[in-house]
C-alpha cells in the first residue's frame, strides 16, 4: 500500500456516510411491506395460499404414483406455504421426492441430472398441448387446487435434462397460466440473477395469462395477456410488480422477446411490446 492508497483510506474513513434523509423511511416502508408480515396479500391470496398447502400434498402423491411408471424427466415443484416459507420438492424416476430450500434448488437440479442420466426429454409444448405438458410432468391436480393455489404465488417448474445436465426449464402457473421456457444456457444466470419467486409474484390474483411461446436461440419468448380481474383491488400495485419482474428478466444474455397481447390484439415483439406493456400497466394504475 503506497502513500496515496493510505490517503484514500483515510479520506474514506473520515468522510461521513452520505445518505438521503428519507432513506430510513424507505427502508421502513420496505420492512413494513414484507410478505410474511401479511402486507400486500389480499384475502383472495391468503385463501389461495391455504389451498396451495393442500395442493402441494396432493401433488406429491400424484408424482409418486406417476413416477413408478417410468417418468423420465426431473421435476421441481415450488410452493409457498401458508407461513410464507417457500420450499421446493423434486421428484425423479422412482418416485423419490423431498423438500429442499429454494436456495439449494440450483445444486439439486445439477445433482439430479448427474445421478439420473436420462434421455433428452426436451419437448416443446405449444398452445393446446397443455394436457401433454401435464402428462409429461406427471402431476395432475384437482381443478380447484389449480384455481385456488397455482393461480397465485406457487409455480410449477419442470426441468428437462439429459446426461449433460438440464437442457430446459419450464415454468407454469395454473392450467392456462404463465409458462415460460428457459434454455439451460440461461439457467445459471436465471437462477442467480432473477428471483424466480418474485418473477411469479406478478400472477398473484391478477388476471395474468400467458399462452404461446416459442423457443428462441438460448432464450424464451413469452406471450403475456393482461386482463384485470373482477373486483380486483390493488391491481395497479401488482401490475407494477409485473412490470418490474418482466423487466428483471431482461438481463444481459437473455435475448428473449416478450410478445404482448392486449384484448386479443397481438403487439409486435421487442421495444414496441414493452412500450405497450408499460402503457397497459399505466392504465391499470
Amino acid at each position: 500500500m503506497d502513500e496515496f492508497d493510505k490517503k484514500l483510506f483515510d479520506m474514506a474513513k473520515n468522510e461521513d456516510i452520505y445518505t438521503p434523509t428519507d432513506l430510513n423511511a424507505r427502508v421502513r416502508e420496505a420492512l413494513d411491506g414484507l410478505p410474511a408480515r401479511g402486507a400486500g396479500l389480499g384475502r383472495t391470496a391468503r385463501v389461495a395460499l391455504c389451498a396451495l398447502a393442500a395442493a402441494t400434498v396432493l401433488a406429491g402423491t400424484a408424482l409418486a404414483a406417476y413416477s413408478a411408471g417410468g417418468f423420465k424427466s426431473v421435476e421441481l415443484w415450488r410452493g409457498k406455504a401458508v407461513d410464507g416459507d417457500t420450499r421446493s420438492w423434486y421428484g425423479v424416476k422412482g418416485g423419490d421426492y423431498r423438500y429442499i430450500p429454494v436456495e439449494e434448488l440450483s445444486d439439486a437440479v445439477r445433482k439430479i441430472a448427474r445421478d439420473n442420466p436420462v434421455a433428452d426429454t426436451t419437448r416443446d409444448f405449444k398452445g393446446k398441448d397443455w394436457s401433454a405438458a401435464q402428462e409429461l410432468s406427471g402431476v395432475t391436480l384437482p381443478a380447484n387446487a389449480f384455481l385456488d393455489g397455482l393461480e397465485i404465488g406457487a409455480s410449477h417448474l419442470t426441468v428437462s435434462a439429459n446426461k449433460n445436465g438440464p437442457t430446459h426449464l419450464r415454468f407454469w402457473q395454473g392450467t392456462d397460466g404463465l409458462w415460460l421456457t428457459v434454455s439451460a444456457d440461461a439457467y445459471t444466470e436465471l437462477m442467480s440473477g432473477v428471483d424466480i419467486h418474485a418473477a411469479y409474484g406478478y400472477a398473484e390474483d391478477t388476471e395474468l395469462r400467458a399462452g404461446e411461446y416459442k423457443t428462441e436461440k438460448g432464450l424464451s419468448a413469452l406471450t403475456v395477456r393482461l386482463k384485470p380481474g373482477e373486483g380486483d383491488d390493488g391491481l395497479g400495485e401488482r401490475a407494477a410488480e409485473t412490470e418490474r419482474c418482466l423487466a428483471e428478466l431482461m438481463v444481459d444474455g437473455f435475448k428473449y422477446h416478450i410478445k404482448v397481447e392486449v384484448d386479443g390484439v397481438n403487439i409486435k415483439t421487442g421495444d414496441e411490446a414493452l412500450e405497450t406493456l408499460h402503457r397497459v400497466l399505466d392504465a391499470f394504475e
Binding site: 445518505t19 438521503p20 432513506l23 427502508v27 420496505a30 411491506g33 414484507l34 410478505p35 410474511a36 418474485a198
Partner: peptide, 30 residues
Amino acid sequence: PNMYRAALSVTGSEAAAEDAVGEAVLRAWR
C-alpha cells in the same frame, strides 16, 4: 447506509440507489 452507498456507486443516481435499497430489503427477506 452501506447498502445505499454501494448501490449509489453502481447507479450514480440517488433515486435509483434508493429504489435499489428498497428492493434489496425485500429480496434479502426472501
